[in-house]
Design a protein around this nucleic acid. Structure first.
Length: 476
RNA sequence: GGCCAGUUGGUGAAGCGGUUCAACACACUGCCCUUUCACGGCAGCAUUCACGGGUUCAAAUCCCGUACUGGUCACCA
C-alpha cells in the first residue's frame, strides 16, 4: 500500500485567505489520518505575482495552525526541488517525452493569429478553440524552425471525440465531453510550464495520492486525466471542495477586504479556533461534536463528508469559537495573550502588574477576540467621563442623589481599599437607603464609570481607584 | 452562449425511501440565575426541505423538467 501524501500548493503572494487555509487544513487532515506526509510546494510559474518572503510567511502560518510540513522548500525531502520555478527542466523533459510519443506537438502560431481566430469565434458566437493548425507540421520541420529561433509552445493533442470521466470523492462521477477540450498548452513560449501541466507532473513525481483543490478546477480535471492517461501515470484521488463565500454572497477575496488568516491572528483570534471553525465550514463530523482538537480532527476527518455546496463565512460563529477557546485558556496563558493588546493601545508604564492582570482577567469571559479588550477597557483609562442620553435618563430618578451620597460616605470611611470592602459598602448603602437591585447598582455604575455596562461593579470601582471614584461621586 | 455543479431556517448544517424526517450549533427572542451588566442555565424559533411533475402503499430523501446561484471555457494560477 502506497503512503498517503497530500500537498498544499499556494502561489507565493504573501497573503492567505480563509478559503486557502481551509484547503490546507483538509489536506493536512487527510494525510495525517493515514499517517502520511503533508508537502508544501510553491507554485510560482507566474513570475509577476511573486512576493519576497512569501515562503517563510506560509511556513509561519501553517506552523501557527499546528501543521507540520513534512517536505517543502525549507526542509527538502526526496522529491525536490519544491519550488516550481526550479523545476523547469523537468517539465520540459516530460513535455518532450510526450512529443516523442506523438501525443504532443510544437505549435508556432503567433498571438496575432490566435487573436484572429478568437475574433472569428466570437463573431460566430461559438467558443474559441485552437484549430490544431500546427499539428500537421512534421517533427523534423518543427525542430528546424526551433533551431532557427522561432518561438513555440508545446501543445497536447487532445481527443476530439468521446468523453472523459472524472472520479471525485466529493462530487462522485462527472462526465466531460472531449469535444469541449482544446489542444492544451503544456509549455509556454517563455519556457515555463502552464499551471495544469506543472501540477500533473509534480503531483506524479512527488507521489501525491490525494489532490485537494477548489471546485473551480472540477471541469479542468478532465484535462488532467487526459494528461495522466497520455503518460500512463496512475491518477490521484480527487477531492474538490466548494468555495467559501463572503457574507455578501460573493467569493472571498483580498480585494473585497475579506479577512486573511494573518488579519484575524493579529486581531487576537486563536489559530486553534480558526482551524476549528474552518474545518466545520463545508465539512461535518459523524456526530454532534463541534469543539475539536487537532488530534481529534485527524481521527474524525472523512473527506467523503465534505459538502458539495458552497458555504458562507460567518464571523459571528468564528467569534463564538474564539470566545470559547479564550475561556478555556489557563489564566497565565490568557494574560500573555491579551497583555500585548493592552500595551499597544495604552500607556501602562504607571500601572502595576497587579492592576494590569486584574483588569485583563475580568474580561476573560467577555471578549471574543484579543483586540476586543482594548475598547472594553477604555473606561479605566479615561480621565473625563460624559454620559450618553440613556444614562442621563436613568439618573433622573429623584432617589438617586441620596444613594450616591450614602455610597460616597461609605467609601470615605473605608480604610482598606479592596473589592470585598467595596461590595460591603454597597450592601450598607442598600440597608441605609432601601435602594436595591438595578436602582442600587446602576446609579453607582453610571456615576463612577459613565456607562451602563461593564464588568463586576466591585472590580470596576476597585480598579478605577479610590481617588478618582470619590472625585466622580462628588461631581454634580 | 456551450458545458459542469449546487439548491434543507438569518448562518453553519444533520438527515439520503418509512420506525420522532426536519437533529445539533451560531445568531435572534423570552424567561431564570447573579441584589446591576456580563457569564451560565432553560425555552421559543423551517407544518416543511427552490419550484413543477413522476415513481412508490410511503419522498427532503429516487427519476424528469423548470428556475435560480455559482464555476468553467487563456501562452492566469
Amino acid at each position: 500500500m502506497e503512503k498517503t501524501r497530500t500537498r498544499f500548493a499556494p502561489s507565493p503572494t504573501g497573503f492567505m485567505h480563509i478559503g486557502n487555509l481551509r484547503t490546507a487544513i483538509f489536506e493536512y487532515l487527510i494525510a495525517k489520518k493515514d499517517n502520511g506526509d503533508f508537502i508544501l510546494r510553491i507554485e510560482d510559474t507566474d513570475q509577476e505575482r511573486k512576493v519576497e518572503g512569501a515562503v517563510d510567511f506560509i511556513y509561519n502560518t501553517l506552523n501557527l495552525c499546528g501543521f507540520k510540513i513534512d517536505e517543502g522548500p525549507n526542509n527538502e525531502g526526496n522529491y525536490g526541488p519544491y519550488i516550481q520555478s526550479e523545476r523547469l527542466d523537468i517539465y520540459k523533459e516530460y513535455a518532450l517525452k510526450l512529443v516523442d510519443m506523438g501525443k504532443a506537438y510544437f505549435c508556432f502560431c503567433s498571438e496575432d493569429r490566435l487573436n484572429e481566430l478568437r475574433e472569428v469565434a466570437s463573431l460566430n458566437k461559438v467558443p474559441f478553440m485552437y484549430d490544431g493548425k500546427c499539428k500537421s507540421i512534421s517533427k523534423e520541420e518543427a525542430l528546424k524552425r526551433i533551431e532557427q529561433g522561432e518561438k513555440y509552445v508545446i501543445r497536447q493533442a487532445m481527443p476530439k471525440e468521446g468523453e472523459t470521466i472524472i472520479e471525485d470523492m466529493v462530487y462522485g462521477k462527472v462526465v466531460i465531453d472531449n469535444s469541449v477540450l482544446e489542444d492544451q498548452i503544456l509549455i509556454k513560449s517563455d519556457g515555463y510550464p502552464t499551471y495544469n501541466f506543472a501540477n500533473v507532473i509534480d503531483d506524479y513525481l512527488m507521489k501525491i495520492t490525494h489532490v485537494v483543490r477548489g471546485k473551480e478546477y472540477l471541469d479542468q480535471t478532465a484535462k488532467y486525466n487526459l494528461l495522466y492517461e497520455a503518460f500512463g501515470f496512475p491518477k490521484p484521488k480527487y477531492i474538490h471542495v466548494a468555495m467559501v463565500l463572503g457574507e455578501d454572497g460573493t467569493k472571498l477575496s483580498k480585494r473585497n477586504g475579506d479577512a486573511s488568516f494573518m488579519d484575524l491572528y493579529k486581531d487576537g483570534y486563536l489559530p486553534e479556533a480558526i482551524v476549528n471553525y474552518l474545518v466545520l465550514l463545508g465539512w461535518s463530523p459523524n456526530s454532534n461534536q463541534e469543539i475539536f482538537t487537532l488530534d481529534e480532527l485527524i481521527k474524525e476527518f472523512d473527506p467523503k463528508r465534505i459538502s458539495k455546496s458552497s458555504s458562507t463565512y460567518d464571523e459571528k460563529k468564528l467569534k463564538w469559537f474564539n470566545a470559547h477557546y479564550i475561556k478555556e485558556m489557563k489564566d497565565e496563558d490568557y494574560l500573555n495573550f491579551v497583555k500585548p493588546f493592552l500595551s499597544d493601545a495604552y500607556d501602562l508604564s504607571q500601572k502595576s502588574d497587579d492592576f494590569i492582570s486584574h483588569l485583563a482577567l475580568i474580561y476573560k469571559n467577555h471578549i471574543s477576540y484579543g483586540k476586543e479588550i482594548v475598547d472594553e477597557v477604555k473606561l479605566f483609562f479615561e480621565d473625563e467621563i460624559s454620559l450618553n442620553d440613556e444614562c442621563k435618563e436613568f439618573m433622573k430618578d429623584c432617589s438617586i442623589p441620596n444613594t450616591i451620597k450614602s455610597f460616597k460616605e461609605e467609601l470615605e470611611g473605608m480604610s482598606d481599599w479592596s473589592v470585598s470592602n467595596i461590595n460591603d459598602a454597597i450592601n450598607k448603602v442598600k440597608e441605609k437607603t432601601g435602594a436595591k437591585g438595578k436602582m442600587l447598582y446602576m446609579p453607582i455604575r453610571i456615576k463612577v464609570s459613565g456607562r451602563m455596562h461593564g464588568p463586576e461593579l466591585g472590580d470596576t470601582i476597585y480598579l478605577i481607584g479610590k481617588e478618582k471614584v470619590l472625585e466622580r461621586l462628588s461631581k454634580e
